[in-house]
Design a protein around this nucleic acid. Sequence first.
DNA 1: CTTTTAAATTTTGAATGCAAAAAACACAAT
DNA 2: ATTGTGTTTTTTGCATTCAAAATTTAAAAG
Lengths: 230, 230
Amino acid sequence: MQKTQFFFIYKIMAFIEHVDLTKRVYEELKKMILEGELKPGEKILQEKIAKQLGISRTPLLKALQMLEYELLVECIPRRGMYVKKLTTREIIDVFYAREVLEGLAARLSAQKISDDQIAQLRGLFEPFLQNTNNISFEAYEKADRRFHIMILKISDSTVLNRLEMIGNVLLIAYQASLVRPPSETLSEHIAIIDAISTRNGDLAERLCRDHISKSRAKLAKEIEIQQSKE
Amino acid sequence: MQKTQFFFIYKIMAFIEHVDLTKRVYEELKKMILEGELKPGEKILQEKIAKQLGISRTPLLKALQMLEYELLVECIPRRGMYVKKLTTREIIDVFYAREVLEGLAARLSAQKISDDQIAQLRGLFEPFLQNTNNISFEAYEKADRRFHIMILKISDSTVLNRLEMIGNVLLIAYQASLVRPPSETLSEHIAIIDAISTRNGDLAERLCRDHISKSRAKLAKEIEIQQSKE
DNA sequence: CTTTTAAATTTTGAATGCAAAAAACACAAT
DNA sequence: ATTGTGTTTTTTGCATTCAAAATTTAAAAG
């Protein structure tokens, strides 16, 4: 049997097994945190969670370390792992980074996007174009988040697609009602898609940056309001 | 004894010990990789390295996982950990990201930089301003790399300062002679410092982007040349 | 009742142990 | 010489174990 044949057999086996404990635990933990089952600031009781998931601390710790890089978990040495409670500064810092990174993603996407992908992007907001003043916020949130992730995917940048924290923080911002309403953002999204699909990378970048810059401004204002209430 | 007093005692203890095996191993491994003691593509023999460093596989694996996020190590499931051999695509992707991220860093730095920090930035290139055509490449490389890292630090962004991969890939680009000569970049560096120290954030961002964009172009060209030689 | 001190319990960071998978080796068959 | 097969060795991923540190609880002193 040849080396190349072995290669394919290994590929298939890796596909079949799918019994990577760390990956499984990573997914479950991420879900638990993002769905609020584990709350920000809460200590992660390793033994307890491990027992709950029917595993040992070894793969749990590996998964927690991954989530640390995604800003979902914080490790305090000799104290333990905690569900990360993002500071306002951190959220704003992520939005500053999103501003330029997703701008870049839009620029690159304009160069590489396929017709199929254009249709996919447009499809996301199709449902909201008719009844502009009767939009389901929940459905729109999903479309919005998918949109931003999809542009990163389309940009096909190995770097941009490693930054899971972008999607996580956008979700967290939604959960904390720190975002702008569809009435403001829908037209911006459409304009970005238009620029990308006409291969106008510079315009796409500028529009995407402005879009997120405005969101960041709103977010900063919203945080200030919330904090003054306390 | 009061709680606050305990707090300080703990702080002091954390400072004294400094015996975090993972951190120590992380530093040593990173050095080994960046100094070429472990070569790109090479398999990391865990048992061997662990014995070499006088530790077990547990902290070694944790350090390796950290280095994975820095693009210095690659994990292939059920095969092992390898010193990452960056593809040309990955290097270019990092430079695209650097372009916008360091642009952002320059913009933010212009808002926050202190007089002391301005002096520090200027000090980096002071030695090269006299004998412009008699520059030690080695010394200049160090200054150049320090400059880019320092701007990230000055920007004081929690996000930008987590992206260790930026510094690593810049070093790797230097090692592979994929960079532009001081005769080109020195004046650009000075212009960026000027823009930052006059608090002109927009200009600083634009100049920094252009600077890295040009470096990326050079890098892409250089890679093409090197590959055509093979 | 509050604070201090001491003892008991839990949790962390790291070493060790171990089954299953992968790689290396040896050798037979084409 | 190359390909295939069976065997041995090594390595991986995970579980387990354990000492040191942190936390909690309990008792004693003010």
